[in-house]
Every structure is written in C-alpha cells, then in structure tokens.
Design a protein around this nucleic acid. Structure first.
Length: 243
DNA sequence: TTCTTTATGACCGGATCGCG
DNA sequence: CGCGATCCGGTCATAAAGAA
C-alpha cells in the first residue's frame, strides 16, 4: 500500500477512514454551526471556533507508522530494520521522548548507539482540508490545499521546526557517539523561506542531514512550491524511487 | 502496600502580536 | 492585509507524589 507512493490525498483519506473506525467524527473533525464536519477551519469561516486537540494523537500515530512502513524496504536493503519509538539512553532518547523511527541493525526498541544507522523524526500533519459527508456511508470531499484553511500544517509551523532542531541538538550533545548517526526530519509540507539558509547550515554543520518532504504535490493547481534549498538541507521527493 | 491525585511533556492547531 | 514567530491549550499517557 505505502510501498509505491509517497504522501498524497489518498493517504489522508485513508487516515480518516481508518481513524473513524476507532474514533468518533467529533474527535477528528470540527463541527460548524450549520452541522458540517471540517478537518480545518476554512479561511473564510466566521463564527465561534474551537481548537481541536483530540485528533493530534491519531495523526501522530498514523504518520509514524506510515513512515516506518515506507522506510522498512530501504532498511531491508541495508540488512537492517525500521523500528518505531526507539529508546537509546546514551543519546537521551528515553521512553517519554524516543526516536520516532530509526533504521537499526537489530529489530528491538532498545538500541545501542553503534547499532543505529539513521534516526528519523516524523513531523507530518493533515495537509489538505476535508469535509466529512454523512450519507449512507461516510465519504470525504477535499475542500482545498493548506492555503485555503487556517491551519499551518507540519514543517510550515515555526515551532515544529524549532522542536525538530532542538531534539536533534539534544541527541548530538548527549553523546559523542551520535556523531556518525544521520538525523533526518520527515515531513509532508514545504518549509517557510525563513528556514532555507538555516536548514542548509544545519546540514553543513552536521547537525541535521536533511528536512525531507514526502509530499510531491502539496498544492493544488500546480501551485509553486520549493523542490530543494541550495545546499539541499530541504528536499522534496516526487516519487518513491527518488526517495 | 495500594489507590488516588497531581505533575509533566508530547501531540498538533488556533489566537495573537509585530512587522513589512 | 498577510505572513511568520510565538504563545496558548485540549487530550492523552506516564510517572511521581500524596493519601489511606
């Protein structure tokens, strides 16, 4: 399923379809005053709004699992495993704040620095806006890309970037043994212009080897969006083979 | 000891503010 | 007005602290 394709609208439909089996529509969508179910508040929405929090854990778990599945074939080629929630005390990756996904020589949650080949931090959101239609069955209607709603998904949020940078530095300074382990941030959105030179510098300094977006077409109607920064600190991948 | 309460932090998105 | 940076917050999981 996720072996051929990167992040697309179909992923988000799949997320909502699967999540609706274990959660309620009210946990996953905003309800407007006229009874419509929206993933995000549209930009032109007027009226009383709330901030949905109950979806956060769902999307976090889904994207980390998806990232693990997409990395696993690559890990296999290296004769290794893509493992979720990796704990490595020496790198300050503890139970409450593990590595989202890591490629490791052994298939265990607990790892020694020597056995970790690469660390991946997953920072992905719902990118498009969706309306849940309740007919006989549930169906989902795409209302537009992230320019049309009020949310700021994934790596477009500055504090998401700061969080990723902070955690990576935490690993780097926890132990010298992290020095040889690449750290990659996986997202499904572009990054803002204000981080272009920063991600390149982070790469050149050897702190974070890349901010990679796995969303080939984050904008509808062929909207302009960045392919990569000058030094490739940020890169957008357009196909699985390229990835 | 065992049960209950409080504290902490991760998750991600809206609100607000400042700046052009 | 629009954008980005920062701040705030609901929910959940876990753990520490307190009560019985």
């Amino acid at each position: 399923m996720s072996d051929k394709h990167l992040w697309t609208k179909e992923r988000e439909i799949d997320f909502f379809t699967k999540s609706l089996k274990i959660g309620t529509p009210e946990q996953l969508f905003y309800v407007t005053k006229d009874g419509k179910y929206y993933a995000y508040w549209p930009k032109n929405y007027k009226g009383v709004k709330t901030t949905l929090q109950s979806r956060n854990a769902f999307i976090g778990a889904y994207t980390e699992k998806w990232a693990q599945e997409i990395l696993n074939p690559i890990a296999k080629e290296l004769n290794a495993h893509a493992v979720r929630n990796v704990v490595c005390e020496e790198l300050e990756l503890i139970k409450g704040s593990p590595a989202d996904v890591a490629i490791c020589k052994t298939n265990s949650i607990f790892q020694e620095p020597e056995d970790i080949i690469a660390i991946f931090e997953v920072k992905m959101s719902i990118v498009w806006n969706w309306e849940l239609l309740k007919n006989s069955e549930f169906s989902l209607k795409c209302l537009g890309d992230y320019r049309t709603h009020q949310g700021n998904p994934g790596l477009l949020r500055s504090d998401t970037m700061l969080k990723a940078i902070g955690k990576s530095i935490s690993v780097r300074i926890a132990s010298l043994k992290s020095a040889k382990i690449p750290i990659i941030i996986l997202g499904n959105t572009p990054i803002t212009r204000s981080y272009y030179t920063k991600v390149d510098n982070l790469k050149n300094y050897g702190i974070i080897q890349g901010f990679w977006s796995l969303n080939p077409k984050p904008l509808d109607n062929n909207g302009e969006n960045i392919k990569s920064t000058e030094q490739e600190g940020f890169m957008r991948f357009d196909s699985y083979s390229e990835f």
